[in-house]
Each structure stands twice: as structure tokens, then as C-alpha cells.
Amino acid sequence: MTYKLILNGKTLKGETTTEAVDAATAEKVFKQYANDNGSDGEWTYDDATKTFTVTE
């Protein structure tokens, strides 16, 4: 399945997607991506749209 990440950071904004077997796997990928790019904030997940959002 395709999962989407929306970044609403102070310095990093945008979207990216990943293919993953489940939401937990996608979350690990996205959290590593956000960490690698210095983005940290409040995470939410919408199962209906398969979208993670991180807001700083």
C-alpha cells in the first residue's frame, strides 16, 4: 500500500510517499525520514487516507 507523509515543519515542509506492508512499517520509514531532515513534532495518522502528518 502507498502511505503519504505531510510535513508541516518550521523549516521543512512538503509531502512524500512510501510503499509499505502496513501503517506501522510506513511510520518507521517516515519517522526516520523526518529525523534525518531535522523535523520533530506532533504526529497524527488518518487511516482512511493512509496519511501521516507531522506538525512542528
Rank of each mutant, 00 (worst) to 15 (best):
T44K: 08
A48S: 11
T44L: 07
D47W: 08
K10G: 10
Q32Y: 04
S39W: 15
G41W: 15
A24Q: 11
N37K: 13
Y3V: 02
F52A: 00
L12R: 10
K31M: 08
D46W: 03
G14V: 15
K13Q: 11
L5M: 04
K4W: 11
G14Y: 15
E56H: 08
K50L: 10
N8A: 09
T51H: 01
D22V: 02
Q32K: 13
T53V: 08
A20D: 02
T53F: 10
T44G: 06
K31E: 03
L7D: 01
K50N: 06
G14N: 09
K4D: 03
D22G: 03
M1C: 14
E42T: 13
V29M: 09
D40V: 14
L5Q: 01
T16H: 14
V29K: 08
D40W: 15
D40A: 12
L12H: 13
Q32N: 07
E27W: 15
A24Y: 09
F30M: 02
M1Q: 13
Y45T: 00
L7A: 04
A26R: 00
N37E: 06
W43N: 00
A26G: 01
T53Y: 12
E27I: 07
D46N: 08
I6T: 04
K50G: 04
T17C: 11
E15V: 13
N8K: 12
L7F: 13
K50C: 05
T49C: 04
L12E: 08
K28A: 13
A24R: 09
G38N: 10
K31W: 07
Y33A: 03
D22P: 00
T44W: 07
T55Y: 09
A23R: 13
G14C: 15
T44V: 09
V29S: 05
Y45F: 05
T16Q: 09
T18C: 15
A23E: 06
T11I: 11
Y45V: 01
K4L: 07
T55D: 06
S39R: 09
A23G: 04
Q32I: 10
T11P: 05
I6G: 01
T16K: 10
F30G: 00
A48W: 06
F52N: 00
K4N: 04
E15Q: 10
E19S: 10
D47I: 08
A20M: 02
T18D: 02
K28P: 02
G9V: 10
T16M: 15
A23D: 04
K50V: 02
T11K: 10
I6Y: 06
V29E: 06
T11F: 14
G9Q: 05
T16W: 15
A23Y: 13
N8G: 05
V21S: 11
D40N: 12
S39N: 11
K28R: 13
A48P: 06
T53L: 05
A20Q: 06
D40L: 12
G9T: 15
N8D: 08
T18L: 11
Y33H: 04
K10C: 14
V21M: 12
D47E: 13
T25A: 14
T25K: 05
E27Y: 15
G9C: 14
A48Y: 09
E56F: 14
Q32G: 06
T55N: 09
Y33D: 01
K31L: 06
T51M: 03
L5K: 01
A23C: 13
A34K: 03
G14H: 13
D22I: 01
D22E: 03
N35H: 14
A34W: 12
N35K: 15
D22M: 02
G14Q: 13
W43Y: 01
K28I: 09
T51P: 01
K50A: 05
V29D: 04
E15I: 12
L7H: 03
Q32D: 06
D22F: 02
E42D: 11
W43M: 05
V54T: 02
A26H: 00
E56S: 11
T44P: 00
A24D: 08
K28F: 09
T53C: 06
S39G: 10
S39D: 05
G9S: 09
V54S: 02
A34C: 14
K28V: 09
S39T: 14
K4R: 13
E42L: 13
Y3E: 02
T11A: 09
T11Q: 09
K10E: 08
A34N: 03
L5C: 08
Y3M: 02
V29G: 03
E15L: 08
Y45C: 00
T51G: 00
T53D: 01
N8R: 12
V21C: 12
V54Q: 03
Q32R: 11
W43C: 01
E42Q: 10
T53E: 04
G9I: 10
T11N: 12
A48N: 10
N37M: 15
D22N: 08
T16F: 15
T18G: 02
W43G: 00
T2A: 05
A23I: 08
A34S: 04
T51E: 03
E19H: 12
N8W: 13
K50R: 14
T44E: 09
T51V: 05
A20E: 03
T17R: 07
E19C: 14
V21F: 12
T49Q: 05
M1H: 14
I6E: 03
E19A: 07
A20C: 07
T44I: 08
K50Y: 08
S39I: 15
M1E: 12
A20L: 01
T16G: 04
A23V: 11
G14A: 13
M1D: 12
E19Q: 14
D46T: 04
K4I: 11
N37W: 14
T2W: 12
I6F: 06
N37S: 09
M1Y: 15
E27K: 10
Y33C: 04
N35Y: 14
M1I: 14
G41H: 06
T25H: 12
Q32H: 06
E27D: 03
K28Y: 08
I6M: 05
T25L: 06
V21Y: 11
L5I: 03
G38Y: 10
V54K: 02
V54W: 11
A34D: 01
V21D: 09
V21N: 09
Y3C: 04
T18N: 03
A48E: 12
